[in-house]
Simulated scan of single mutants.
Amino acid sequence: MTPSAPRQLTLPLPLPVSSDRADYLEDASNAEALAWIDQPDRWPGGRLAVFGPAGVGKSHLARAMGWRLIEGPTLRGLPDPAAGGTVLDDADAVAEERALLHLINLCAERGERLLLIGREAPARWPVALPDLASRLRATTAIGIGRPGDALLGALLAKHFADRQLRVAPEVQAWLVARLSREASALAEAAARLDRAALVARAPVTRALARAALAGWDGFGEGADDDASETLHSPPSPQVPALL
């Protein structure tokens, strides 16, 4: 008996998270925020807050500034002066209110730009210090909404291109209609499909995607799915890589 070939192991390789401002795709949901981000000299008092739900790219924006980045829960004491400015991500999760108040005051005294990132507008943050509440209410706040279909489609295509994974446009459109409308869900879906395609040694079809994503919270079946489609369906022809 001829020994069978050893099964090839697939190693999931994490892709680096881009911090390039050019990689941040624009649509109606974030256009106003991007316009403010790109003109820090316009920020009233040198301070701006950007807020929105999880998965809309706030942390990507924070890193794309190229400024000193502080995670809100880790804020303690007074930081040293920073070139350009300071970004406080998860600013609404700061554990020490007085540290946030000192940071706001310090940046104002030094003439440094300060960008606050959170899920709610600063005026809604539940703070106890009156001085801090006053400064937060005075901070210009710009919201980012849920992305539209065009942005979701472009973002999913970019995740596939980054992984050099060929997925037909009609399959991508099918996925966008069923995936959670969050950037993080699209990235996770691309990673799962990449692994599934490597294991199956087959292109990403609807059938393969349905099997790979079944049971995951970020994926929901559509009412128009063809129930007769199975993993034994003929593979789709290859399409050019999305570059």
Rank of each mutant, 00 (worst) to 15 (best):
V171M: 02
G46M: 00
T74K: 15
T74A: 14
R163K: 08
P234T: 02
V87M: 14
L69R: 06
E109L: 13
A49K: 00
L179N: 06
A209V: 02
E71D: 15
S18V: 04
L101S: 11
F160R: 00
E112P: 07
A173N: 12
P130S: 12
G111N: 06
P240K: 03
I37H: 14
W174C: 01
R42M: 12
A187G: 06
P44F: 01
A183P: 09
L156G: 12
D38G: 12
T230Y: 12
L101C: 12
S59W: 07
V50H: 02
P79N: 09
R206I: 12
A5P: 11
Q238R: 11
P235M: 09
T205K: 02
L114R: 03
G46W: 00
E182F: 08
A64W: 09
H232I: 08
A31S: 14
P240Q: 01
E188D: 03
L151Y: 03
A64N: 02
G84E: 14
A33D: 12
G222R: 12
H60D: 06
R210Y: 05
E96N: 15
R137Q: 09
N105Y: 11
I142V: 15
T86H: 10
A189D: 10
R110C: 07
W174F: 05
A191Q: 07
S180R: 11
P40Q: 06
A191W: 01
R113N: 13
L61R: 14
D217P: 07
L179C: 06
A141G: 02
P44M: 09
I37A: 15
I142L: 14
P12I: 02
D224I: 02
L231Y: 02
V50P: 11
A190R: 02
S4I: 14
V171A: 01
E97S: 08
R192K: 01
R137N: 10
L152R: 02
P14E: 09
R166K: 08
G52S: 08
S180F: 01
E221T: 12
A93P: 03
H159E: 13
R163S: 02
A157M: 01
S233D: 15
G143F: 00
M65S: 15
P73Y: 06
G55N: 09
L136Y: 01
R206C: 13
P81E: 10
T2F: 15
P73Q: 10
R166I: 04
P16L: 03
A121Y: 01
E32M: 14
I142Q: 13
A168T: 05
E71P: 09
S233V: 10
Q8H: 04
A185D: 13
G145Q: 15
E32A: 14
